[in-house]
Nucleic acid binder design. Structure first.
Length: 649
RNA sequence: GCCGACGUAGCUCAGGGGUAGAGCGUUUCCUUGGUAAGGAAGAGGUCACGGGUUCAAUUCCCGUCGUUGGCUCCA
C-alpha cells in the first residue's frame, strides 16, 4: 500500500500501482470524467501512470492552467500526426504548448505552407481526435531512440536525443504516431473537440539564425466547439483595440513611405496628447528634483567610441554622417547618456551637490531591422523620457527606490495595473557580451534586486537580458494580442562614469567616481502611447484625451448659442470643439460616440431658453440638463479623482 | 535580416486576362432636426513600383518597396 496526499491535505491509502485517474474516480465520477492531467510529487505524470510510492498528487482539469497545458501539448502531437499524414517526408522537431495554444516546428523541405492548407490540416487533426486514441508513454534506450530517428532521416530529433541521458528518454504513442516526448498528456485524443490552425511562421532551429529555418505551425484546440468560437471572437475584439487601427481612426499618428519606414509622424491630436503626457511627467519630475537639459540630435563619432556604443552597435547602426569640408564623422544619436555625461562634466561637483538628475525628452534614432518594425511600438526614431542620475555610491540605493516610486506613479496614473517587473542580469554563460568589471556588475545587480524587494515589487529575474553596460529593472506590459513590451526601465551603470572619467569631490577632499542611473518611466513616448491606446481602446483618461467634449447644436438656429457655450467651456479649461455641420443630431451623436469624445454637449431650443447644456456621456447615455458651471465641476472632479499628484516618499 | 501572407478611391473592403465597383468620408443642393446613420446629385483610382509572358496585364510570373504574423535582434 502507498499513501497519497491530496491538495487539501487529506491522506488516503491505495494499493501500489494505483493511477491518478483511479484516485479521481475514488473522489467522484464527475472529477474522473474531467481530469486531464496530473502531477505526482511535483512531477508531470500521465493520468494512467501507476503510482508506486508515497507522495502528493494534484489532479487538473481544463479549468487549470496545468490542464490546458497538457491539453495543448497533446494537441501538438495530433497536429504533428496530421502534418505527417498530409505531407509525407516532413521532419518534426519540437512542439510545445504555449500561453494560448501550441505550435510545432516542422522542416517541410522545399514546400511552403500557406493559409490555404489550414482547413485540410484541421480536418485531418479532428479526424485523428475523433479516433479516441490513448496517449501511451514508453521508455526507450538512447540507442533505440537514435536508431528510430536516424531511420527517419531526422537530424533534429537525433540532436535532441543526443543531449539526453540514457534512461531518461521516453516516447509517446497514439494511434500510429510516435514522438519523442517527456510526457504530460490528456488521456486520449477524443477529448479534443475543436481544432484550429492559426498561422504559420518561420522559426530558426533552436532559435539560432545561423541554423536551418523551420516552418512553425501555430494552432489552438478546445474541449468544446463553443470555446473555440468564443476564443476567435475574443481575437476579433482584440484587433479592434490595435493601436495602429485606433491611431488612424482617431487621427493621432501616421506613417509615410516617403518619409521612411519606422519613422512616425504625429498628427495634431496625437502631438497634443503626447505634449500632455510630457507635462504630466515633467511636473512629477520637478517634484522629484530633476532638472531639464537639452542636447542635439547628433554627436561626434568619438563620443560613442568613448561610451562603448560604437564598438557594440556601430556596424548595425545608421552610418556616420560626414561633414563636406573637414570630413568629420557624426552619428545620429542612438542614446542620450553620452551627451548627459558631458553635461555633468561642465564643472567639478561637490558631493554636497549630488545627486544630479538630468532629464530630457530626447529623440533618438536606431537602425532596427526592417522585420522588427511594428506600428508605434518598434520604430527607428523615437523620443525617450530619459534622465540620468549621477550620484554617490551611498545614494544609489535610495535614488533607485525613488525612481521605482516615480515609475509606479506613472503606470498607476495611467491605469496600467497589470504590468510585470523584470530584473535583467548577466548571462553567466556569455561573459564576453558585457563591459565593465565583475565587481561592479555584482554591486549593481545586488542594488537592483535589493531595491525591488524593498519596494515590494513582484519581479522575475531574467539572466542574459541585461544591457551590455549594466543590469536593469524593466516594467513590462502586454498589448491587445498578449505580446509583452518593455515600457519603463531603470538601469544601474558603473561603466559610463568610468569611460567618461566622471568625478565629484567627496567629503575627504578626494575625487570619486559617481554612479549613474539611466531611467525612463514611459520608456518611449511612441511605445507608451501605443500600449495606452490598446489598454484604453482609445478611451483615454479625461485629463489626457485629445478633446474632452464636443458641442452639438440641434439645428442651425442654435449655432450662435453653441458657439457661446464652446467659449465658456474653453474658459473653464475644458478642451472642446463644435460640430456645426448641417446634419441631424442623431448623426452627430453617432459620430461623436464613434469618435470616442468623452462628453457630448447638446444644445437646442430648450437649452437656449434656460441657458443650460444637455450632457451625454460617451457610452453612458443622456445625463440630463446642466449649467456650464455644473458641467465644468463634473469634468474637473473626474479629472482630480483619476489624476493624483506625485508625492515623494 | 529570415520564412509566410498581403498591397484596388481619403478610410473599410469586393472583384478579376479585354484599362474597374460598394459603403463611409469629401463637394454641391434640398431638408432645420432632440440623444447612435434625413434625402438627392457630383467629384475622386497609372489597381504600390519596375520588369517579363501575352494580340491584350490591375489580374499570371519575377524583382523592388511597404505593411503584416512569427523567428532572430533590441543601447
Amino acid at each position: 500500500m502507498i499513501e497519497i496526499t491530496l491538495p487539501d491535505g487529506k491522506k488516503v491509502r491505495y494499493p501500489e500501482g494505483v493511477t491518478p485517474i483511479d484516485v479521481a474516480r475514488d473522489i467522484s465520477e464527475g472529477l474522473a470524467r474531467n481530469v486531464i492531467s496530473a502531477r505526482f510529487n511535483n512531477r508531470k505524470v500521465e493520468t494512467v501512470t501507476p503510482l508506486v510510492e508515497d507522495g502528493s498528487l494534484v489532479l487538473y482539469t481544463w479549468n487549470d492552467d496545468e490542464g490546458k497545458k497538457a491539453f495543448w501539448h497533446s494537441s501538438s502531437h495530433i497536429l504533428a500526426q496530421a502534418l505527417e499524414q498530409l505531407y509525407p517526408g516532413v521532419r518534426l522537431t519540437i512542439g510545445p504548448a504555449i500561453e494560448n495554444g501550441f505550435y510545432y516546428d516542422v522542416d517541410f523541405g522545399d514546400r511552403a505552407l500557406s493559409e490555404k492548407d489550414f482547413p485540410a490540416i484541421e480536418k485531418q487533426a479532428l479526424e485523428i481526435a475523433r479516433g479516441k486514441h490513448d496517449f501511451k508513454m514508453r521508455e526507450v534506450s538512447k540507442q533505440d531512440a537514435l536508431a528510430y530517428y536516424r531511420k527517419q532521416d531526422n537530424p533534429f530529433k537525433v540532436e535532441l536525443i543526443e543531449g539526453l541521458q540514457d534512461g531518461d528518454i521516453t516516447f509517446c504513442d497514439h494511434d500510429t504516431f510516435t514522438d519523442l516526448c517527456r510526457g504530460g498528456h490528456i488521456p486520449n485524443t477524443g477529448i479534443v473537440k475543436a481544432f484550429k490552425v492559426l498561422n504559420v511562421a518561420g522559426a530558426y532551429w533552436r532559435g539560432d539564425e545561423k541554423r536551418p529555418q523551420l516552418t512553425r505551425v501555430y494552432g489552438i484546440s478546445f474541449p468544446k466547439q463553443k470555446d473555440l468560437t468564443e476564443y476567435l471572437e475574443l481575437l476579433e475584439e482584440a484587433k479592434k483595440r490595435d493601436h495602429r487601427k485606433l491611431g488612424k481612426e482617431l487621427e493621432l499618428f501616421t506613417f509615410s513611405q516617403k518619409v521612411g519606414q519606422g519613422l512616425p509622424l504625429w498628427l495634431p491630436k496625437g502631438a497634443a496628447l503626447r505634449e500632455r503626457l510630457e507635462q504630466f511627467l515633467k511636473k512629477a519630475q520637478k517634484q522629484a528634483g530633476y532638472e531639464m537639459v537639452v542636447s542635439p540630435h547628433i554627436g561626434q563619432k568619438e563620443l560613442y567610441v568613448t561610451s562603448g556604443h560604437y564598438a557594440k552597435y556601430g556596424a548595425d547602426s545608421f552610418q556616420p554622417i560626414h561633414t563636406p569640408k573637414e570630413d568629420e564623422e557624426f552619428l545620429l544619436k542612438p542614446m542620450n547618456c553620452p551627451h548627459h555625461c558631458e553635461i555633468f562634466k561642465v564643472r567639478p561637483f561637490s558631493y554636497r551637490e549630488l545627486p544630479k538628475r538630468y532629464a530630457e525628452f530626447g529623440t533618438v534614432y536606431r537602425y532596427e531591422q526592417s522585420g522588427e518594425l511594428h506600428g508605434l511600438t518598434r520604430v527607428r526614431g523615437f523620443t525617450q523620457d530619459d534622465a540620468h542620475i549621477f550620484c554617490t555610491h551611498d545614494q544609489l540605493d535610495q535614488e533607485f527606490k525613488r525612481v521605482i516610486d516615480l515609475s509606479l506613479y506613472v503606470l498607476t496614473s495611467l491605469g496600467f495595473d497589470n504590468y510585470t517587473a523584470q530584473v535583467s542580469v548577466r548571462d553567466p554563460e556569455n561573459p564576453d557580451k558585457y563591459i565593465g568589471s565583475v565587481e561592479n556588475w555584482e554591486k549593481a545587480e545586488a542594488a537592483i534586486i535589493n531595491a525591488a524587494r524593498e519596494k515590494g515589487l513582484n519581479f522575475v529575474i531574467e539572466p542574459g537580458e541585461a544591457a551590455f553596460y549594466g543590469p536593469k529593472l524593466d516594467f513590462m506590459v502586454k498589448d491587445a494580442l498578449g505580446r509583452q513590451w518593455q515600457l519603463g526601465t531603470i538601469q544601474v551603470d558603473y561603466n559610463l562614469p568610468e569611460r567618461f572619467e566622471l568625478t565629484y569631490k567627496g567629503s575627504d577632499n578626494e575625487m570619486h567616481r559617481p554612479v549613474m542611473i539611466h531611467r525612463a518611466p514611459f520608456g518611449s513616448m511612441e511605445r507608451f502611447v501605443a500600449l495606452l491606446l490598446e489598454h484604453t481602446g482609445g478611451n483615454f483618461p479625461l485629463w489626457l484625451t485629445p478633446m474632452q467634449a464636443i458641442v452639438l447644436p440641434v439645428s442651425e438656429k442654435h449655432e450662435k448659442y453653441a458657439e457661446k457655450v464652446l467659449k465658456s467651456l474653453e474658459n473653464h479649461e475644458i478642451r472642446a470643439l463644435l460640430d456645426a455641420r448641417a446634419e441631424t443630431v442623431g448623426k452627430k451623436i453617432r459620430e461623436a460616440e464613434l469618435g470616442k469624445y468623452p462628453f457630448m454637449v447638446i444644445v437646442g431650443d430648450q437649452e437656449m431658453a434656460d441657458g443650460t447644456l444637455s450632457v451625454r456621456r460617451h457610452g453612458g447615455g443622456d445625463l440630463g440638463s446642466l449649467s456650464v458651471e455644473a458641467f465644468a465641476n463634473l469634468v474637473s472632479s473626474e479629472i482630480s479623482s483619476t489624476l493624483k499628484s506625485f508625492e515623494l516618499s
